[in-house]
Amino acid sequence: MRFLGAPLGIFSKMATCILLLELLALACSVAFASDHSPLQDFCVAEPNSPALVNGLVCKDPKLVQADDFFFSGLQLSGNTSNPVGSKVTLFDVAKISGLNTLGVSMARVDYAPWGVNPPHYHPRASQMLTVLEGTLEVGFVTSNPENRLITKVLQKGDVFVYPVNLIHFERNVGYGNAVAIAALNSQNPGVITIANAVFGSTPDISSDILVKAFQLDKNVINYIQSQF
Rank of each mutant, 00 (worst) to 15 (best):
F11W: 11
N188Y: 06
A195S: 14
V109Y: 00
F91S: 04
T202V: 08
N144E: 05
D92Y: 05
T193P: 04
Q127I: 04
V30I: 15
L184V: 06
I224T: 00
C28S: 13
V220Q: 08
D208H: 10
D35S: 06
V141R: 01
H36Y: 11
A112I: 07
L184F: 04
D68G: 04
L8A: 14
S226I: 11
T135S: 10
G55D: 00
K156T: 07
V131L: 01
P163H: 06
I18Y: 12
V57F: 04
V191K: 09
L20D: 07
D92Q: 13
C58W: 02
N188P: 05
Y175C: 08
F32P: 01
R124V: 03
K87M: 14
G9I: 07
T89G: 08
S49W: 05
L149T: 11
Y223N: 12
L21C: 15
S207T: 07
A45H: 01
H120D: 02
L24F: 14
A45G: 05
P38C: 10
A51I: 11
P145K: 06
F70S: 10
T16M: 14
Q187V: 06
L26H: 12
S226P: 06
A33F: 09
F42L: 13
N188G: 07
N222A: 13
T101R: 01
A182H: 02
I181M: 11
V64N: 02
C58H: 03
N185V: 08
Y121R: 00
M1S: 14
G139R: 01
V44K: 03
A125E: 00
S126M: 11
T135N: 09
P189H: 03
F11S: 09
Q155L: 13
P145H: 05
T151W: 03
L102M: 09
Q187K: 08
C17S: 14
F228Y: 15
G176W: 01
I181F: 05
Q187F: 05
L63I: 13
A112T: 08
F42R: 10
N219V: 09
Q65S: 14
A213H: 07
R108E: 01
V220R: 08
D60R: 09
P203F: 06
D92R: 07
V173A: 05
G78P: 04
Y175F: 12
S37N: 13
I18S: 13
F169R: 02
C43S: 05
I209A: 10
L102D: 00
I150A: 00
S29P: 05
L154Q: 00
D41W: 12
N165R: 13
N82V: 09
P83N: 12
L63M: 15
T193M: 12
E137G: 04
M106F: 09
P189L: 04
A182L: 03
Q40G: 15
N185F: 06
K152E: 09
F11I: 07
M1F: 10
P38M: 13
K156L: 03
S97P: 10
F42S: 14
S206M: 10
N82G: 08
I192F: 12
P119R: 01
G139W: 00
T142C: 06
I209N: 11
D68N: 10
I194H: 10
S126D: 08
E170Y: 03
G78A: 08
Q227F: 12
S29G: 10
H168S: 04
A195N: 11
S77M: 12
